Structure formats: C-alpha cells, structure tokens
Simulated assay, not measured.
Amino acid sequence: MSEMVFFNPGDAIASDHDFNAALRSAEIFHRKQKQHELMIVKEENGKTYAVFNATDAQTDASAQTNRYQIAKQMPKTTFH
C-alpha cells in the first residue's frame, strides 16, 4: 500500500511528466536549500510528478489540495 499525502498544487517547487526530470529539479533545489526536506510525489490519477517541501503537506483533503502518492522523500541531509 502506498502512502498518500495532500498538497496545494500552487505550492509545488517544480513539476514534470518525467520522474527523472522532477528528481533533477529537486536535487538542484535541495543543494541550494539544504534545510528543507523534499518530497517527489505523483498525482493520484495523473501522470505528473511534483516536488514539494515536506512541511507544506496537509493532513486531509480540502478544496485547495490534491491527493498525491509519494514517489521519493529527500531528507534534509541528502546532499552536501
């Protein structure tokens, strides 16, 4: 069973239809902003991957959030 999270799509740092492209964007941002834990997530019913700051995750669905499946988590200390 995959873990689901909720984010406001407007809070996305980056998005792409290709996981590797989203991962590259996340790595670039992560190198510059090491204090952030990032999540690469996939739309529940779509083909888009998005990068979010993990602290922007919502606890439940609302009119302003979309449901996403976690594809990869990047802790604060992944890159130096």
Rank of each mutant, 00 (worst) to 15 (best):
M1K: 07
S2K: 10
S2W: 01
V5F: 02
V5I: 10
V5R: 03
F6C: 06
P9E: 00
D11P: 14
D11C: 11
I13D: 05
I13C: 14
A14Y: 08
S15K: 10
S15W: 04
D16N: 15
D16S: 10
D16I: 15
H17Y: 15
H17S: 14
F19C: 08
N20C: 11
N20T: 11
L23F: 10
L23E: 14
R24Y: 15
R24S: 12
S25W: 05
S25E: 10
S25L: 08
S25F: 12
S25N: 11
E27W: 04
I28P: 01
I28A: 05
I28R: 00
R31Q: 03
K32A: 05
Q33L: 10
K34Y: 09
Q35L: 13
Q35W: 15
Q35H: 15
Q35E: 12
Q35M: 13
H36F: 13
E37V: 10
E37W: 14
E37D: 07
L38C: 00
L38I: 01
M39H: 06
M39L: 08
I40A: 00
K42I: 05
K42D: 00
E44H: 13
N45A: 13
G46W: 01
G46D: 03
K47S: 08
T48H: 06
T48K: 10
T48A: 08
T48C: 11
T48S: 14
Y49S: 00
Y49R: 02
Y49T: 00
V51A: 04
A54C: 06
A57E: 11
Q58S: 05
Q58G: 02
D60R: 11
D60Y: 12
A61C: 07
A61V: 07
A63I: 09
A63T: 14
A63S: 13
A63V: 14
A63R: 08
T65P: 02
N66S: 12
R67V: 09
Y68L: 03
Y68S: 02
Y68A: 00
Y68N: 01
Q69S: 13
Q69V: 11
A71N: 01
A71D: 00
K72C: 05
Q73H: 06
Q73A: 07
M74Y: 00
P75A: 05
T78R: 12
T78C: 15
T78L: 07
T78I: 15
F79L: 05
H80R: 09
